[in-house]
Design a protein around this nucleic acid. Structure first.
Length: 446
RNA sequence: CGGAGUGUGGCGCAGCCUGGUAGCGCACCUGCUUCGGGAGCAGGGGGUCGCAGGUUCGAAUCCUGCCACUCCGACCA
């Protein structure tokens, strides 16, 4: 993308309403624009990041065997009456009447809908297990939206729902999602820690929240350092090997890790030696539940088991706050100059910065880099604006492009361009072809 | 939902108390000089002062009502 043709409305000054760094930076970098309280438009840069996050979630969900669907945002009140949640949910649910005065609602979640779908399409234990998911906008009419997309009323969420014949099957499905989440967040460059959670309004007993550590997190967290030091790495997964999955889950859940909701100081001290106790703050980016037949019973989602008996489906639900992640990643990765995107979710992987637009040699060198990198599959931002160098650097750092290729007449005289890392600040002078090869190695591209 | 505030050009703000030609910085446009980490000078464009009533010769300013948004707290993917 040539910056001169892009739409990137950055702002120099800090918007007064933004209290936390991710909100400030998202506004300044032209990623989002507030439409009304807790509701945002995603501008090109923000939209790009959101799509990259979504792509990773889709990829990992499907790797773990979940099947993509897409359910509507507007739902009928009837289903919610059957589950008993129409009244329970309270004013947080946005209720709408259509022209026939039928009661509708903008979905805050989709358990009822998916259970209805499962009830209609799954008849036998032979059809199980199944995990379906979608990534769809949700609306929860928060009393006090704040922190930009971290706590909006409208938000994009991945929600998956598993269906099994019995508790053992449901546990296996739960564990698949658990492991899938470890992989998903790690791919995004995040350290997400599973923590024992309260089940909240959805109910259930087997439940974990995934939190990333950040100073501005909304929850206080208490954990054993050994959990924070775990990393998933490249290990091979057999998604059908229930025992192996259970082993991984055990590895991540054996140590103490809780939020302030479930934290117990006495247990913490008893289980964790003092030098391993970590007290920090975290942002919830995922939440998984097992809830058994809570919805399948009232919604009559029942199947026949091998013994010819009709039994209610065993279910769980599994959420990832996709739009929240965009903010959470920034909370976890930024500096005074702006955002520092992990490569996997960066809106652009590399920026070509032309220090002297209009200089024939510089222009030619930049055009060459831009077309070659693009041809090699890179997402490139070419800053071809007629701006001063300082302004280009500032923009590039603000929007967090992980790598810069700096091209100017001075370097070209010596046959070099500068390759600079946004994260470390390290700079290296290389011949243009060498710089491209360096990037190709880094990103695993030819 | 309790408490506290704010609405004036795209953004950040002053002006309001004490009514009398709507202003500043950034951004934007034009020109010149600059140009390797958010340039300088000169000129220029853009605002029904949140909305509706009221008081007044005259309202951004005073009064009444409404709307929107923000912050603190309780609550939440």
């Amino acid at each position: 993308m040539r910056l001169s043709r892009y739409f990137l409305p950055i702002i120099k000054e800090t918007p007064s309403e933004a209290q936390i760094v991710s909100h400030r930076l998202m506004l300044r970098a032209g990623m989002i624009r507030q439409a009304s309280a807790g509701i945002y438009s995603w501008l090109p840069l923000g939209c790009k990041v959101l799509r990259k996050i979504e792509a990773i979630v889709h990829d990992e969900q499907q790797a773990a065997g979940a099947i993509p669907v897409l359910m509507p945002t507007i739902q009928s009140a009837d289903l919610w009456r059957q589950s008993g949640r129409y009244d329970d949910y309270g004013p947080e649910m946005l209720r709408i009447n259509d022209r026939h005065d039928r009661e509708m609602l903008y979905g805050p979640t989709n358990e009822e809908q998916i259970t209805e779908i499962a009830a209609a399409g799954i008849r036998s234990y032979r059809d199980l297990p199944k995990t379906l998911y979608h990534i769809q906008w949700k609306f929860r009419d928060e009393v006090r939206p704040r922190f930009g997309v971290m706590r909006g009323r409208e938000f994009l969420m991945k929600d998956a729902y598993s269906f099994d014949i019995d508790k053992a099957g449901a546990t296996a499905s739960y564990n698949r999602m658990f492991v899938s989440y470890l992989r998903t967040f790690e791919r995004m460059g995040l350290k997400a820690i599973p923590m024992k959670a309260d089940s909240g309004p959805i109910g259930g007993d087997m439940t974990h929240e995934f939190l990333i550590l950040a100073e501005t997190g909304e929850s206080a967290v208490f954990l054993d350092r050994t959990i924070a030091d775990l990393s998933f790495g490249d290990r091979e997964i057999d998604w059908d090997d229930a025992a192996a999955l259970q082993g991984i889950v055990d590895q991540w859940t054996n140590g103490y890790a809780r939020t302030d909701e479930t934290h117990d100081e006495t247990t913490f001290h008893a289980e964790v030696p003092e030098d391993r106790r970590v007290t920090a703050r975290g942002i919830e980016v995922g939440h998984i539940f097992y809830f058994g037949s809570k919805y399948s019973e009232p919604l009559n989602a029942k199947v026949m088991n091998p013994d010819g008996e009709t039994v209610a489906l065993e279910s769980g639900s599994y959420g990832i706050g996709v739009s929240r992640l965009a903010g959470a990643i920034i909370e976890a990765s930024h500096d005074d100059n702006g955002i520092i995107w992990p490569e996997a979710v960066a809106p652009f992987e590399v920026a070509v910065i032309n220090l002297k637009q209009g200089d024939a040699e510089a222009d030619a060198a930049c055009e060459d880099l831009y077309s070659k990198l693009t041809a090699r599959g890179f997402d490139v931002l070419y800053d071809d604006r007629d701006e001063r160098a300082g302004s280009k650097f500032a923009t590039c750092d603000l929007i967090g492009v992980p790598w810069k290729l700096v091209v100017g007449p001075r370097g070209l005289k010596n046959g070099v361009v500068e390759l600079a890392s946004r994260r470390t600040g390290e700079k290296e002078e290389l011949a243009p072809d060498d710089a491209m090869n360096r990037l190709a190695d880094r990103f695993g591209r030819a």
